[in-house]
């Protein structure tokens, strides 16, 4: 039955039309679902969530560390790097540490890092206090650091 779709001779009289209509429905469904997903991501990307946990390495003791997980195939990681480095440069007591997620897969699994960039905000004592996925803005980083001090 389906094989007829290889030979589109009489649309409307064979299965081609059915397949074509289904195909259009699939296209509409995909576009709607992708729009919802994209809008959700746009709203939540870079949002710093409060988390708890601790890390014994990969932070600068005595400083608030912005620990950024990046990957090679990741343009937003570059934007986030610029933002975090700027904050570290201009704020005393804040360090930025960027690591290639691929090179630390054990840590990535342990911390359940799923996508890049992911930034962990680590208090001077090594407690993980915040976590953000997706590109961060300068304001989002500054707010998160303010929350550590508070």
């Amino acid at each position: 039955m389906w094989r007829k779709s290889k030979f589109p001779t009489r649309p409307g009289h064979d299965t081609l039309e059915g397949v074509g209509q289904t195909g259009l429905l699939v296209a509409v469904f995909v576009l709607l679902a992708a729009t919802a997903f994209g809008a959700y991501r746009k709203a939540t990307d870079g949002k710093v969530r409060s988390v708890s946990g601790s890390i014994s390495h990969l932070h600068e003791p005595g400083k608030i560390t912005l620990l950024q997980f990046s990957s090679a195939f990741c343009a937003p990681c570059r934007a986030t790097r610029v933002v975090c480095a700027e904050v570290a440069r201009t704020t005393p007591g804040v360090a930025h540490l960027e690591i290639d997620a691929e090179s630390q897969l054990d840590t990535v699994r342990a911390l359940r890092i799923r996508r890049t960039p992911t930034v962990l905000i680590i208090a001077p004592g090594g407690e993980i206090v915040g976590r953000a996925e997706g590109a961060l803005t300068l304001a989002q980083v500054r707010t998160a650091i303010g929350a550590v001090h508070a």
């Binding site: 991501r41 990741c74 343009a75």
Partner: peptide, 12 residues
């Protein structure tokens, strides 16, 4: 539409 980065999502 969103500048979505596929590599960021699936590569890791």
């Amino acid at each position: 539409a969103f500048g979505f980065c596929l590599g960021c999502e699936v590569y890791l």
